[in-house]
Simulated scan of single mutants.
Amino acid sequence: MNIEQLKSDLIEYAKSIGVDKIGFTTASPFEEMKNRLIRQQALNYQSGFEERDVEKRTDPKKLLPEGESIIAIALAYPSKMKNPPAGKKGERRGIFARASWGLDYHVAVKERLDLMEQWLRERVPDVSVKSMVDTGELVDRAVAERAGIGWSGKNCSIITPEFGSYVYLGEMITNIPFPPDAPIENECGDCRLCLDICPTGALVEAGRLNSKRCIAFLTQTKDYLPDEFRREIGNRVYGCDTCQTVCPKNKGKANWIHEEFMPVPELAKPLLVPLLNLSNKEFKRKFGTMAGSWRGKKPIQRNAILALAHFKEQSAVPELIELLKNDERPVIRGTSAWALGVIGGEQAKEALLEALQQEKDEEVLREIGKGLELLGRG
């Protein structure tokens, strides 16, 4: 078997199925990443969504003992929306992060990896492979960096010369000893825009993220949002792009390449008030194909309430009062109480005072107290 030729042919095939970048590296352990992850755990900076076993995250042979190399791929996604709908008073809109526009990337990237697996099996019958996208054990960023897809930016994203950091990553461990590609030079230089502009200070230093402070993580949690972050969410209902939108390497990278990733404007920038009363069935029908739907409707609805508070949207007060009175979920009732306090007005005050007499949940009662305190300050 001519491995150099196989590699060349695979690169051509990958491009033909919509893979925008492909790189190869060895299946040797990622020692530097291992040390970083151990440090992350010691600092309690992990989100909790990751694989906890550091060995599995950094040693490909723990996942495929006969592994010899790793194939890394990247698919570019859009950074700009054509004809974005504008929010206005009475019709406020939220925003999903760009990585959740269009079809769920887990599906799209996995489809490409599956096709590549099939292609390899047809040519190398005894091939062994293990593919993964985002939720797999390996750290996608470490694989992509070593395989020459891009460099690891100070904002903890892989930055490619062609598409900026707007790329989805995936990888495949294989027992075929493909020749590795060289990593590319880090071009961040002295720039620290992403570090300086992070709304919550989650980027504690170049290349180190405190996930628990990251808005992208916070918007995916299901409990009450800690008070210090509530006003930083803005109108984000899922994810955060701030550290990408300020990056000079992303300037001019629209990446209108794959039709499946092009956003449906009314879904990517949805009206906030209609989000509040969606049933599970309606939510799945409307948003189910987007990556941002994976945690269900509750975090999206909580974030929509916070966004309405951000806008001080008076027209939403009746809907928020309805949630405060009748929603079965304490987090939604409590967040609505806080939002009513931020928005203010006599109607909000009356509703909070009434809820204070009727509510039984202690945490919701605390949120009602916060709302009344905010009204008092107003």
Score class of each variant (00 low, 15 high):
residue 177 P to F: 03
residue 31 E to I: 08
residue 77 Y to T: 02
residue 270 P to K: 02
residue 147 A to F: 08
residue 173 I to V: 10
residue 62 K to N: 14
residue 244 Q to C: 03
residue 44 N to T: 12
residue 329 R to V: 13
residue 72 A to Y: 03
residue 88 K to A: 13
residue 228 E to W: 11
residue 28 S to F: 09
residue 311 F to M: 01
residue 349 K to N: 14
residue 337 A to P: 07
residue 77 Y to A: 01
residue 279 S to M: 05
residue 106 H to R: 04
residue 254 A to E: 15
residue 167 V to I: 12
residue 271 L to S: 04
residue 348 A to T: 03
residue 350 E to P: 06
residue 185 E to D: 13
residue 259 E to I: 05
residue 114 D to C: 10
residue 296 G to I: 10
residue 338 W to S: 04
residue 123 R to L: 07
residue 40 Q to T: 10
residue 218 L to H: 10
residue 326 N to L: 09
residue 179 P to V: 04
residue 205 E to D: 12
residue 172 M to L: 09
residue 258 H to Y: 04
residue 43 L to H: 06
residue 276 L to G: 05
residue 192 R to F: 14
residue 162 E to G: 00
residue 77 Y to F: 13
residue 97 A to F: 02
residue 74 A to P: 03
residue 13 Y to C: 08
residue 221 T to V: 15
residue 6 L to T: 05
residue 189 G to K: 05
residue 352 L to V: 01
residue 153 G to C: 08
residue 17 I to E: 15
residue 87 G to A: 06
residue 174 T to C: 07
residue 131 S to A: 13
residue 376 G to T: 06
residue 139 V to F: 00
residue 192 R to T: 14
residue 36 R to A: 13
residue 79 S to A: 09
residue 271 L to I: 01
residue 54 V to D: 10
residue 55 E to F: 15
residue 297 K to C: 10
residue 40 Q to R: 14
residue 120 L to Q: 08
residue 113 L to T: 00
residue 19 V to L: 08
residue 176 I to C: 09
residue 159 I to R: 00
residue 117 E to G: 13
residue 22 I to R: 02
residue 75 L to Y: 01
residue 40 Q to S: 15
residue 49 F to R: 06
residue 259 E to W: 07
residue 10 L to W: 05
residue 319 E to S: 14
residue 14 A to N: 05
residue 8 S to I: 07
residue 34 K to V: 06
residue 156 C to Q: 00
residue 117 E to K: 15
residue 361 D to E: 15
residue 154 K to M: 02
residue 163 F to S: 01
residue 327 D to G: 13
residue 53 D to R: 10
residue 17 I to R: 08
residue 278 L to Q: 00
residue 163 F to N: 01
residue 286 K to G: 10
residue 28 S to R: 15
residue 125 P to Q: 02
residue 119 W to T: 02
residue 365 L to I: 10
residue 214 C to N: 02
residue 28 S to W: 12
residue 327 D to S: 14
residue 341 G to Y: 12
residue 109 V to P: 02
residue 20 D to K: 01
residue 222 K to D: 11
residue 44 N to I: 08
residue 342 V to P: 03
residue 22 I to C: 09
residue 254 A to H: 13
